[in-house]
Amino acid sequence: MRDYLDVGQDELYRETADSYGAAVARLARAYEADADRRRDLVQEIHIALWRSFTSFDGRCSLRTWVYRVSHNAAISYVMRQQRNNAPLVTLEDLESLPDGRAGEDAADRSRALERLLALIQQLKPVDRQVILSYLEGMDAAAIGEITGLSPGNVATKIHRIKHILTRQFHQGGRHVG
């Protein structure tokens, strides 16, 4: 792992913006549907990241740090917006919902993405954080590091996520991790 202790705040931020800019934009999309407000949220996250690098000590990976700070900035944003939003649900709630949309034909990627976003945006914060980390390709240990949840808890949630994705989007076919 690269030694980040010798790297300055600005350089760390530049590196983060280059490597994780797209991931931050995707994360913001999962937290805010409105395009204008999403731009504000992305800015807030970038400012939080830049500020956070004054205290980055390399005890966790840069990726873990970036996701942790980004999620926290997004959660803080959600907390402020909470009263205007629809009630949020848990993974357990989604699992128990009738599988009404399972038979729909998600004809293209864009439609599939819309459905995935709609599913994510109605999740409660902790579940949203887990599913986003899962979709960003992180393993249970990394998700646990970001969320502070126990490995067992993360494993249970990932299992539920896979189950929900299968039920909500199953059209028969390919295998996912």
Binding site: A17, G21, A22, V24, A25, R26, R29, R39, V42, Q43, H46, D105, A106, A107, D108, R109, R111, A112, L113, R115, L116, Y134, L135, E136, G137, K162, L165, T166, F169, H170, Q171, G172, G173, R174, H175, V176, G177
Partner: peptide
């Protein structure tokens, strides 16, 4: 596990979505 979004891997769908990173 068999799981897709209209034939696509959800992780792939998620990660390949078009986004405009902030500059």
């Amino acid at each position: 596990m068999s799981d897709n979004l209209g034939g696509d891997d959800p992780i792939q769908v998620w990660q390949s979505q078009p986004v405009e990173p902030l500059i």
